Simulated scan of single mutants.
Amino acid sequence: MTIATDRRSATGLLTPLLAGALVMVALGVYGRVHTPTGFAVGPGGFSGALPMKSWLTTGAFVLAFVQVVSALSMWGKIGVSIPAWVHRWSGRVAFVLTIPVAFHCLYALGLQYDVPRVLVHSLLGCFFYGVFTAKMLALPRKGLPGWTLPLLGGGLFAALVGLWLTSSLWFFTTIGVRL
Rank of each mutant, 00 (worst) to 15 (best):
L124K: 11
T148C: 12
Y113L: 00
F128H: 11
S54H: 10
V62P: 02
G91H: 06
T98W: 08
G146S: 01
L63G: 04
G28W: 03
H121A: 08
L119W: 05
P51C: 11
T58Y: 04
L109M: 00
V86H: 07
W89R: 12
V93T: 13
P83M: 01
H104S: 08
P83S: 11
Y30G: 09
T37L: 12
S70T: 00
P43L: 01
P145I: 03
L72A: 11
G110N: 02
S73M: 11
L139R: 14
G59K: 04
I82W: 03
L124A: 14
M52N: 11
L144A: 13
G79M: 01
G59L: 07
T148W: 09
S122D: 14
L123I: 11
Q67A: 10
I82N: 03
V93C: 10
V68T: 13
V120L: 14
V118L: 10
M136G: 08
G110C: 00
L50F: 15
I82G: 11
T35Q: 05
K135S: 14
T37W: 04
K53R: 15
H87I: 00
F127H: 10
Q112I: 07
G59H: 07
V96A: 15
L106I: 13
F127W: 13
H34M: 07
L111G: 13
L137F: 06
V29R: 04
G45H: 02
T133L: 09
V86S: 04
A138E: 01
K77E: 06
S70L: 02
R88F: 09
A40T: 02
G125V: 03
F127C: 02
V120W: 02
W147H: 11
T57M: 06
K135H: 15
L149C: 03
F95A: 14
L106G: 07
S70R: 01
G79P: 02
A138I: 00
A49C: 06
V69I: 14
V101N: 05
L63H: 07
T133F: 04
W75Y: 15
F61V: 10
T148K: 05
V41G: 00
L119D: 01
P100F: 08
